[in-house]
Amino acid sequence: PGLTMLGKAYEFFQICDMEGKGFITRQDMQRLHPELPLSLEELEKVFVTLDADGNGSLTPKEFTTGFSEFFLL
């Protein structure tokens, strides 16, 4: 089950990281706005919540950690 979750997290990471940079920026997150039923404010909140070290970019590790926390709830 752990591996399935990681695979899913990575799929989602790739949806956000459309250019395949290997990290997600605020702009990448805001680009999802037309596709997801979340406001820009909510997307910003998601970004800040996932960006554990606050450096302005989300690594696959930060993204996966956030996803696993959600998954375990």
Partner: peptide, 29 residues
């Protein structure tokens, strides 16, 4: 505790975000 409230809200937004991604993956025709 305001911090706990903020945490709960973040969790709600995160859940909303990931659920939306889930339905985006599976929901489109």
């Amino acid at each position: 505790d305001p911090n706990m409230k903020a945490g709960a809200t973040s969790e709600g937004v995160l859940a909303n975000f990931f659920n939306s991604l889930l339905s985006k993956k599976t929901g489109s025709p």
